[in-house]
Design a protein around this nucleic acid. Structure first.
Lengths: 343, 343
DNA sequence: AAATTCACCGTGAACGTTCACGTGAATGGA
DNA sequence: TCCATTCACGTGAACGTTCACGGTGAATTT
């Protein structure tokens, strides 16, 4: 039950600690012969270096923190998947942390991660203020953030093209002839919320379709939140024929709200979501959405984090993730004669 | 950028390391007065104890590992949620690890977690053999496993009542008058696969409904796997009017397969899934399923792990999780006159 | 033959804590 | 007065590694 230490191996192989260390990390001068001998001793004793002890001196723990708002939103597991796949390849372990979109919790979690000694942190859509983030970045080294624009040497960004996502949705609605469109969005005023609405509304206005606060309703970025928000909005503004949702969960909630209100999709109400999570193609009618490569977000974030770890003083440009409109059954012509493009 | 150590605090407060340590962990003899003085010094310097250093001597890292097959299956995030909520309360951090149902990967992950020094490990449905698990448990202390029965002092079990789950599904099919029922199951022969089929088949046989290998088809426990398996099974055995799926993802895949084969649900084919993940009530028709309290699994697993940590020599009984049949739109009468009970 | 180089390997220190002691002062009772 | 007890705090060691040295013998050069 006692742990096998480097000294046990050293004794067994008849060498010193340092030689064992050299054999394991195959660096430094060591003959092939003794290296073999050490490594067989390692195998026989089942020795694995104690990471805490290593961390003490190397200042590296081989761990990173991944923090996001809600693991129940399928968007995040997909990203996490990408992060983990890259991490495991490099023998990194990753802490997953839910913030519940609560700044208090997020602060606590970040502190906890720092104390834990994680080598880096990836924050998917922080709900902290810019000031708090800058302050945090002052005390802590490599941070990757998505959908957030904070200018700090220790922070590298990965930005989803939210504006274009909103614009694509708006363009489609316009092309389909919709004149009265609404927005179901996150009650928390996040970066992505602002940018998605911005892209959406600006495009609508270009085509002279109205878009103001009266057609926007907010709620939690969940199924229930989308359901409630959609119900409120459609009750208040029954003339709406199209809805753009902050994310797919809200869109799915909105779909259920429509069903409950006896509004047919897409005949009476068209809906476009955001993220293109797996569910979109399972439900019926299937959901049109703005696709973003979630797995790739994870891969890119973790890869960049490793780069920052490898070259602490280098500066890295921020990266942008493209989006794409995926049309499914939840959107359809309102007036066929207005169909400018087929899709 | 340099870390504040316990010595810095000691110097600032004019005391020794040990006194600072006493103040922080408020144990041992220390006067209120100096404790105050130390704590203000701590606040001023922004000192946080280095966990790696603590771990070196206490043999506790304040971390646990949570390993499961696939984070993309919504079942696991819900469990993870429960684990994390309990963990955070006790200042624990949790590593999440995907095994992809690959024994090689799982072994590697377990090794990695041990080297990392996690205080305990929760394994949701291991895909390792009993021998490998016993061997691992010999070298490592507290382990919680779900859906696995391994008799070892270091392992505590949390068992979902799979047999009853299968029985409930079978009973319902029989009561609805189905005479030809099929099974879509996991290609990996896991404990839960065996028990679910066992409960299902035994109950069918009790009612003299046939149930043998010819009506079982296997696939990956995913949407795609369920889709493919259902298509194969329904092609081979077109007389089937009811399907019992290993989990909800496979069930949803099967639903899609039915749609593609122009089989109406539930008029022509009834389907029951397992787990009762959120999706079941979103899709249309909604999916009947065997419900198990996933969040509670996580809570119970983590709670028990903490108990084992607190009392390393105590023995704990294994726990069972109840199941419940939730009927939705995917199941309906075949022959109304056979309806023994209403539900 | 002496000096230099080189390949290989070992030794003390350090990382930041906590644990098991040790110590000195104050207090109490006989 | 003396000893025992209690309280408050400090000191050396230890946890298991790696780093920066230093050393040794053999090979090579001068």
């Amino acid at each position: 039950m006692k742990q096998v230490t480097i000294n046990d191996v050293a004794k067994a192989a008849g060498v010193s600690r340092q030689t064992v260390s050299r054999a394991m990390n195959d660096k430094g001068e060591i003959s092939e012969e003794t290296k073999e001998r050490v490594l067989t001793a390692v195998r026989e004793l089942g020795y694995r270096p104690n990471r805490m002890a290593q961390s003490m001196v190397t200042r590296r723990t081989g761990t990173v923190g991944l923090v996001f708002s809600d693991i129940l939103n399928p968007f995040f597991p997909e990203v996490a998947r990408g992060v983990q796949d890259v991490a495991r390849e490099q023998e990194y372990n990753v802490f997953l942390c839910n913030t519940d979109d609560d700044p208090k919790v997020e602060t606590q979690i970040l502190q906890s991660l720092v104390a834990q000694g994680v080598d880096g942190i990836i924050i998917l859509g922080s709900c902290l203020g810019a000031k708090a983030l800058l302050e945090f970045a002052d005390t802590y080294h490599p941070i990757i953030m998505t959908n957030r624009f904070v200018n700090h040497i220790n922070i590298n960004q990965l930005i989803v093209d939210n504006v274009r996502g909103g614009a694509l949705a708006a363009e489609h609605f316009v092309q389909q002839g919709h004149q009265h469109v609404g927005i179901i969005t996150n009650e928390n005023v996040s970066y992505s919320r602002v940018r998605r609405i911005q892209g959406f509304c600006n495009t609508l206005l270009q085509y002279e379709v109205a878009c103001d606060d009266s057609v926007i309703e907010s709620g939690a970025p969940t199924l229930a939140g989308g359901y409630a928000a959609a119900k409120r909005l459609l009750t208040r503004q029954p003339q709406l024929t199209a809805l753009f949702a902050y994310n797919d969960l809200m869109a799915l909630g909105a779909m259920r709200a429509c069903r409950d209100m006896n509004l047919n999709i897409p005949e009476q109400v068209s809906i476009i979501g955001f993220d293109d999570i797996h569910l979109t193609s399972i439900v019926s009618p299937s959901l049109s959405s703005i696709r973003v490569d979630k797995y790739m977000i994870g891969v890119k974030a973790m890869t960049r984090l490793l780069e920052m770890l490898a070259r602490p003083d280098a500066e890295f440009p921020w990266q942008e993730m493209p989006v794409e409109l995926v049309l499914r059954e939840s959107t359809r012509l309102v007036n066929p004669q207005n169909d400018l493009k087929s899709s």
